[in-house]
Design a protein around this nucleic acid. Sequence first.
DNA 1: GTGAGTTTTTGTACATGTAAGGAAACTACT
DNA 2: AGTAGTTTCCTTACATGTACAAAAACTCAC
Lengths: 223, 223
Amino acid sequence: MQQPSPTPRKATGRPPRISREEVVETARRIVAEEGVGKLTMRRLAGEIGSTPMALYHHVRNKEELLVLLLDDYAARALRPVELPADPRERVLAAATAIHDALAACPWIVEVLAADDLFSTHALWYVERIVDGLVDCGLSPERAAQGYRAIWYYTTGEIVVRATAAERRAGDDRPTYREQVFAALDPAEYPRLAQVAGRWEPVTAQDAYGDGLRALVTGLLAAG
Amino acid sequence: MQQPSPTPRKATGRPPRISREEVVETARRIVAEEGVGKLTMRRLAGEIGSTPMALYHHVRNKEELLVLLLDDYAARALRPVELPADPRERVLAAATAIHDALAACPWIVEVLAADDLFSTHALWYVERIVDGLVDCGLSPERAAQGYRAIWYYTTGEIVVRATAAERRAGDDRPTYREQVFAALDPAEYPRLAQVAGRWEPVTAQDAYGDGLRALVTGLLAAG
DNA sequence: GTGAGTTTTTGTACATGTAAGGAAACTACT
DNA sequence: AGTAGTTTCCTTACATGTACAAAAACTCAC
């Protein structure tokens, strides 16, 4: 992979005019300034002063570019901070930190459906979560499983909310949910009819923390 | 919207040659036979004997078509069944039924990031879940919130797993996770280093049920 | 210098979703 | 019959990601 020589490597071939870093940095700027919708390979290449296909020697495809952007974002947004001493509270705080950082970055959804370890820069928080769970008495296995459950819950919350929001935008028709509740047969679905009016506010309110607490409670109870 | 006339409506305009039902049904067949990757608007139009743009008079865009396909799938896969009498077990069984149906349908991921009520045909199960939670002593609000938490967890599990699987396919490079664990500094991340070897099997094994049980336990404890 | 080998860049080309505008096929009213 | 109105369909065109192949720019061995 890498030569052991002091000077990195590369003794041969046409010298690159652009670098992966430049690609990612420029992409980051475009996204920051105009949104992820404006990020196209052509636009990016133009901005760098290159051609679209040249980019493909530095990133494997657009998806990888987005993953790199997410990683870059995590590096900035997930700096280690002071966390509570109590292990359970530590788990909650670390998970919430990851959640809030990702939720603040809506364009990320397209990439977020990533595996559980989405960035080395989030590792610090992952460590806190697993450590907290172990300190609460879980075995290492159970702690790892617990982290995964938390990750599913977290990423699900973000993806669902963001996609729903996007679908609502630029679409003045009533929501699918509104249609469902409007045409709900109370005889067939008494419970849903009962909560129909309260569904909207329940959805709108930020209940991530409540669900997270419940999940952690349950994980600890099982361990 | 609809005339109150006995004959549905439509007294004017060019008579349609294709119907929304035909579009969806043909799309379903293509997906079933050759996978969602082969479903293109041109291909679909050709199969129907029409033109791509004609389809857009029956579905608003490809995404809506996929949502309709998901709905169609839910109608088949989520038939009501006998569920346990015990309310807690009922919640678990209903959630697992939804989960398993969706997990068996990998192409769905692109659409799944939907809002909580993704199909009327899943309503029956949603009703069972909310009802079970209420029977366990939760208030209607809390039950609705609880359902949402379950939905986040479920959809997150599916989306994450499916996307990870897709990324792994056609890519022989080591996983990001493998790279992370390979380069892990045990001094900095002792817990992660401790579980590193066990992470892979933990990930592979199907722990949806365990996490779900924990979540429900926690939800009930909070209520 | 010359040629081989290697890496990066470029040019061309294609598949895809879909916007825009006009043509086609029908009904209703005169 | 003729005209207006309405709905559906078709043609054309564009933006986008990216495959493929050839050109360009460099190093090294001779």
